[in-house]
Computed example of a mutant assay.
Amino acid sequence: MHASAEPSPVAAPTPIENFVPLAVDVRHLRVKYGKFVAVQDISLEIPAGEVFGFIGPNGAGKSSTFRVLATLQPKYEGEARVCGLDVRGDPQRVREKMGFVPDYFGVYEDLTVREYLHFFAAAYRLSVTGRKAVVDDVLQLTDLTHKIDFQVDSLSRGMKQRLSLARVLIHDPEVLLLDEPASGLDPRARIEMRELLKALRDMGKTILISSHILHELAQLCTRIGIIEAGHIVSQGTVADIYRQLGMLKIVHLQVANETPELLDRIRRIPGVTQVDSQTDRISLRYEDGAIEIEELHARICAAGARVRMFQSEVMDMETAFMKLTEGTTQ
């Protein structure tokens, strides 16, 4: 009698404790206005809790994408979901999960701040007894408590932008769509807006921001997407985009013993693509990922350079944006 074969081991279930649901899921989105195609073929997967920056020139398709997600653009091709809800099939429930701040303030400017927020609290069907506490909370968060009895029309643009955020926070949405929230703001108001967005990020909100202020998005966002002519030309973290582009990093050198022979030896270091002798320094370009900065310094010294200055820099997000939208990667 043969011994029975041992049962095959059962595969352990895939752990789900690290699973992060998608707050926004867009697949092959296409938006047309007559014959004009504003959004060509956009796909996005944005996990809950992420801050995603949408970067692109005017007319690139940012606002059209936001209008679809905000249930304001019913005619589109492809799929769009917010918190797992189909935008086209279940718009009312999507609105309950989402808050949208457009790039213009809107109407009702003859109301006071108190009247304005209580009006929207009623529109969101908050109970009469609970409205005051909610309004007080959003005013405190947006630092507008001292303006509660001012007319909306008397507020500065920066305060109106913060009031727009207070309005969409009344029903405590999970996802925020902010279309150019810092547009037209002075430097102080821009800093205040950035700090407010950081506070919302720390509260766990999923935030989509469209903006031209690229360096601020790079500081605030977990990922960014660069869009042009209705297409996303690149998306990922700032570091991802540099790697996708194969963008060159730059080092500025001063050496005590510069000679043509030394420059030739530096040019032969793997990963170095260009070495230029300037009036007071040597400018060196190298491929990101081909060599670490510490190894590059060691190789330059090994080539015989007596280094006085070694200063690294990286192309900023404005440069990345310009190169991407020009179709140039070098």
Results as ranks from 00 to 15, higher is better:
residue 182 A to V: 13
residue 183 S to P: 05
residue 184 G to S: 09
residue 185 L to C: 15
residue 188 R to N: 14
residue 190 R to Y: 05
residue 191 I to C: 08
residue 192 E to N: 10
residue 196 L to T: 10
residue 197 L to V: 10
residue 198 K to Q: 14
residue 201 R to D: 12
residue 201 R to Q: 15
residue 202 D to S: 15
residue 203 M to N: 09
residue 212 H to D: 01
residue 213 I to V: 15
residue 214 L to E: 03
residue 218 A to P: 00
residue 218 A to D: 14
residue 218 A to H: 10
residue 219 Q to E: 14
residue 222 T to L: 03
residue 223 R to W: 03
residue 224 I to L: 12
residue 225 G to H: 04
residue 226 I to L: 11
residue 227 I to N: 02
residue 228 E to K: 13
residue 229 A to M: 10
residue 230 G to M: 09
residue 232 I to V: 13
residue 235 Q to N: 14
residue 236 G to L: 05
residue 236 G to K: 04
residue 237 T to V: 06
residue 243 R to N: 06
residue 243 R to E: 15
residue 247 M to F: 08
residue 247 M to W: 07
residue 248 L to P: 00
residue 249 K to P: 00
residue 251 V to G: 03
residue 253 L to G: 05
residue 254 Q to K: 15
residue 254 Q to V: 13
residue 257 N to C: 08
residue 257 N to T: 08
residue 259 T to Q: 02
residue 260 P to C: 09
residue 260 P to Y: 09
residue 260 P to N: 08
residue 262 L to S: 08
residue 263 L to R: 06
residue 264 D to R: 11
residue 266 I to F: 07
residue 266 I to G: 07
residue 268 R to I: 00
residue 272 V to R: 00
residue 273 T to H: 03
residue 273 T to K: 11
residue 273 T to I: 02
residue 273 T to Y: 00
residue 276 D to R: 14
residue 277 S to F: 00
residue 277 S to Y: 00
residue 278 Q to C: 07
residue 279 T to D: 11
residue 279 T to I: 09
residue 281 R to A: 12
residue 283 S to Y: 01
residue 285 R to T: 06
residue 287 E to V: 10
residue 288 D to N: 10
residue 288 D to T: 07
residue 289 G to L: 06
residue 290 A to T: 06
residue 291 I to V: 13
residue 294 E to Q: 12
residue 295 E to R: 06
residue 298 A to V: 12
residue 299 R to T: 00
residue 300 I to D: 00
residue 300 I to S: 00
residue 301 C to R: 10
residue 312 S to R: 13
residue 313 E to I: 09
residue 313 E to W: 02
